[in-house]
């Protein structure tokens, strides 16, 4: 017992004398996790994308080539990329537009007990299973669903039908249309947009907005020239979530939407039944490149200047 405590004391003394050793010990496990499990698998993925598949035998050829990347530019594959990027952009913009007033209200006016109620209201949807939420939306949007019933009751079915008749975004019912996919994506990722926006709006001092008004700016000018630039880091952080989550998701478009595929579904299909790991890997690299490009653009445009 005594020896044990003496040993512990000498260990703690050593760590106190060599703080770098302590830091090393603390940082090693997460560094190993990040380095080997996370970056290692990412690198493995990247490596796979430079291999190719023999079209006749279906055997993977372990020679470095850009042939698989070339396949991404085939019309059928390139359509998938364009469709996914357009969807992710639309979801991000939609979430920013819907989320901003919510986040602004929470940051500016929610005080005392209203603050936890706000957090609860925004986060509660995240507590239930993602699949349950997506399937409930399928029911809401279905031909026999509540949304259709509401339109019927209001004698507005003609409006909904006219909308569904529009090619690309329409379809037989909302639950099998691209609009349906958009609505579900928007619902599921909205909290990831609201929370960072709220955090950044909360850091904008109120006197900043008063100063802008005092100097003669009308409310929309204050929004455009002060509030938005100062909230932009939060909007960008939120958009990183909504954009990348939409880019990679394969379940929502599978359950709600048309049969046109998204990147996530393509990755799922190619690495599964088709056994085309290189092409699946190449598809998986697309969101990474898109995100890197997006962040580079955001930085260049000065989105992080207010950080």
């Amino acid at each position: 017992m005594k020896m044990q405590s003496a040993m512990l004391t000498s260990i703690s003394d050593t760590l106190w004398r060599k703080p770098n050793l302590l830091i090393l010990l603390l940082i090693l496990p997460p560094a190993l996790w990040l380095g080997i499990i996370y970056l290692g698998s990412l690198f493995a993925l990247l490596a796979q994308s430079f291999f190719s598949i023999d079209e006749f035998s279906g055997v993977i050829q372990y020679e470095l080539t850009l042939k698989t990347y070339g396949e991404l530019f085939r019309p059928s594959n390139f359509d998938i990329i364009i469709r996914t990027v357009v969807m992710a952009t639309a979801v991000t913009i939609g979430a920013a537009i819907i989320g901003f007033p919510v986040a602004y209200f929470a940051a500016r006016y929610a005080q005392g007990k209203w603050k936890p109620i706000f957090y609860l209201g925004v986060m509660m949807p995240l507590w239930s299973s993602y699949l349950v939420k997506v399937y409930s939306w399928k029911l809401i949007l279905a031909k026999e669903g509540i949304l259709n019933w509401i339109f019927e009751s209001l004698h507005l079915s003609w409006l909904l039908n006219a909308y569904l008749a529009i090619p690309v975004i329409g379809g037989y019912s909302l639950s099998v249309s691209a609009t349906g996919t958009f609505l579900v994506f928007l619902y599921v990722w909205l909290p990831f947009m609201i929370l960072p926006m709220q955090a950044s709006l909360e850091r904008v001092p109120h006197t900043m907005l008063e100063a802008s008004g005092d100097l003669g700016a009308r409310p929309y000018q204050t929004f455009r020239h002060v509030l938005l630039p100062l909230a932009l880091p939060g909007v960008i952080a939120g958009s990183i979530f909504t954009f990348s989550l939409t880019l990679g998701d394969y379940i929502i478009p599978q359950i709600v939407g048309s049969s046109r595929r998204f990147i996530g579904q393509a990755v799922y299909a190619y690495q599964g039944t088709a056994g085309n790991i290189p092409l699946a890997a190449a598809f998986a690299v697309v969101p990474i490149i898109l995100m890197a490009f997006y962040l580079w653009l955001a930085k260049r445009k000065g989105a992080f200047d207010a950080l």
Binding site: T207, A211, G213, D214, G216, R218, V226, L230, D305
Partner: peptide
């Protein structure tokens, strides 16, 4: 409203806009 009043304020915490340089801050009005 404040933006129509012929008065201007120097705030206690100055309330300078952090994303604008000094010249653009001064030129804001």
């Amino acid at each position: 409203p404040p933006y129509k009043r012929p008065v201007n304020t120097v705030f206690q915490d100055y309330a300078l806009f952090p994303h604008l340089n000094v010249r653009d801050n001064v030129a804001y009005g």
